[in-house]
Amino acid sequence: MEFPLDLLLNAIVAGILLGGFYAAVSVGLSISFGMLDIVNIAHPAFIILGAFVAYLANTTIGADPIVTTVVLSPAFFALGAAIYQVYYLSFEKRGHESLRSLAFFFGLMFITEVSLLLVFGVDYRTVQAAYIGPSLALGGVGLPLRLFVPCLVSIAMVVLLQVFLQKTFTGRCILAVAQNQVALQLMGADPIRIRRIAFGLSIATAAIAGAFLITIQPVEPSIGRDYIGRVFAVCVLGGMGSLPGTLLAAVILGVAESFTATFYGPSWAPAVSFGILLLTLACRPAGLLGR
């Protein structure tokens, strides 16, 4: 019975590493959907955009994919802020228009995907970095660096965001936005500006997660669709806007997918997130750490 135990341990470790990556993928949505109540279904499209930016920098000037997106994150922040401005003027200001704002983000997702398709084609793209390839071995358990490095950076990013939200004035304003607008006005902050900053942040994290993605696996423009179920499953399971909940939910999804891939085959993995999402919505819509 040595072999199955090995397989089991490997599946657990791979799942946890994958979960760390999923946390980065979903944390932005936990901010936009969970805290701001903006249903940004285009979130995965921005991840893919980040992945292709990392790819361009890597193939042209040999830059490290993760460093690239971190350095360029202000640009993505600005992109997010600009999108929020359009969203605000078109939907929030005119009153509640959930149907059309959903269609708006769906359109953005589609435009991003088709544009990338027009520029890069349908081929899978990869990047080069020192940590892609080698693997640490702990006993019989493999620890591939291409998963380990994104996982570490991702956890650092989530922790940093949590510190930002709790320790800085702007961060506390964002949390106040999530609770109620009145409290925010008492703090003397402009709710629109706070929401713009928060949405910018969420897009910046998506771009950085894109660099992780292309480090972990080859990327093509339509791959973002596989992440829609995942990001929303993690966000809802994590309790809509709780970062520790997001991290925990991401690890649960990672382990569940890793098990499914190991014992049933990788082609079933996309169904796992949907199952988790539906189960959560049916049984515990408040999420794991919800009240």
């Binding site: 959930s98 829609i228 179920g229 082609s267 079933w268 949907f274 539906l278 919505l281 819509p285």
Partner: peptide, 27 residues
């Protein structure tokens, strides 16, 4: 399954459902 919930969850569920049906057919 989803209409008892807020409208956005229905929308998200339909998005995910298309992907799951795709997965089923592929397999």
């Amino acid at each position: 399954l989803t209409l008892r919930l807020r409208g956005v969850f229905f929308a998200i569920a339909t998005l995910a459902m298309a992907i799951v049906l795709h997965t089923l057919i592929v397999n």
